[in-house]
Amino acid sequence: MAANAADVTSRARSSEVLLKVEDVELRFGGVRALRGVSFEVRRGEIFSIIGPNGAGKSSMLNCINGFYHPTSGTITYKGQPRKAMRPYVTASQGVARTFQNIALFKGMSTLDNIMTGRHLKTKATLLENAFWFGRAKREEMEHRKFCEEIIDFLNLQHVRKTAVGTLPYGLQKRVELGRALAAEPELLLLDEPMAGMNLEEKQDMARFILDVNDEFGMTICLIEHDMGVVMDLSDSIVVLDHGEMIGQGTPEEVSNDPKVIEAYLGVQEEGEA
């Protein structure tokens, strides 16, 4: 598979800031979902947003993604300040994401779902598609090859042609990751990739996330509640509570921050690992 940023591996991160969020505020009427949130995501890192329920984590992701537009503050992506833009424009700039509640195309097969993820890479026009000539056929084969590699990578071979609506939950999560990967994004947003999974599935998913980061050099920004996973995977973490940032830093810094412990992690008994 094309490692589009082979020089950037997870162990040797560049200092380039891919995404910069500055003083973002998001209001729905009287509700202030986000207040003065600022952080930086550097290219090639695994960045986590954590916090209790209703802290504004998904809202933050939706802002990055173009679903919501911040009431004030700026989001700078690849050095360009972003204006209010539609999600499909964000996608064309190399941002892909998965959802907390799986948002797959249930009537379509696994393969078709992942192929749809290649959408931005297809150029064939309607007429070419209608008569199956020129780019239509050529592109279809190229993308099929690429998607087969993703299917191999995620171990989805056996459900290639199964409608995703009938797949078990864990597999659906994996297909959704596959669909996001198919777009070859620079920034991958994962909204609770491990919610509702059992231990084994979590381990698989954690391995996939690390591999994606390592092999393809994708920058990952994820929301997750499983602290073990977050602390192990992340390079840096930001903690939100009631829309406000209460902590930021490396996993060690965050897990020792008294404010974070009070709001979210809870006090650990002596001797408990």
Binding site: P87, F105, T116, H119, L120, A124, A136, R179
Partner: peptide
Amino acid sequence: SSTGRKWMAIRDMDVAAEIIGI
């Protein structure tokens, strides 16, 4: 083809379709 997949994506979940650039 890709056109048909785009249509089905809109049919099945238009929010997710928009997120992948449709």
